[in-house]
Write a protein that binds this DNA or RNA. Sequence first.
DNA 1: GCTATGACAAGGA
DNA 2: CTCCTTGCCATAG
Length: 120
Amino acid sequence: MDKVLQIINMVPAGKVVSYGQVALMAGTPRGARFVGGVLCFRGDNTPWWRVINNAGRISTTCLDHTATTQKEKLRAEGVEVSEKLKIDIERFRWRPEPDALKKLELDEEYTQQIMEKYFF
DNA sequence: GCTATGACAAGGA
DNA sequence: CTCCTTGCCATAG
């Protein structure tokens, strides 16, 4: 799943993406769960703090990357995070550009889904 | 190939 | 909106 890391590395500062979104872009629509695992292992070279769940909530349990740390990181980049680790995801969601999607060599059906789900 | 596990997602209370 | 339950998938052993 180096694709996952590749995707996350594309996320600009001040924006966030959901695990589900990343998973979908990686070609594994329901492999969202594993995305987090990758971040814990390779989080050192990846902006893991820009990844949250679809409910706009931080749900990390990784001891090296605590929720508090993530909150600080996001705020430092301009993302508003409430004390309850709640984020207005629709306002800060990163909407991948067609050019970015092209790099991933995604199937048409996936790109379509991404557009319909997150681009409206 | 089968089982267990996980930084999730969606739906109901 | 928050909490709980169920379902899914990819990876490790």
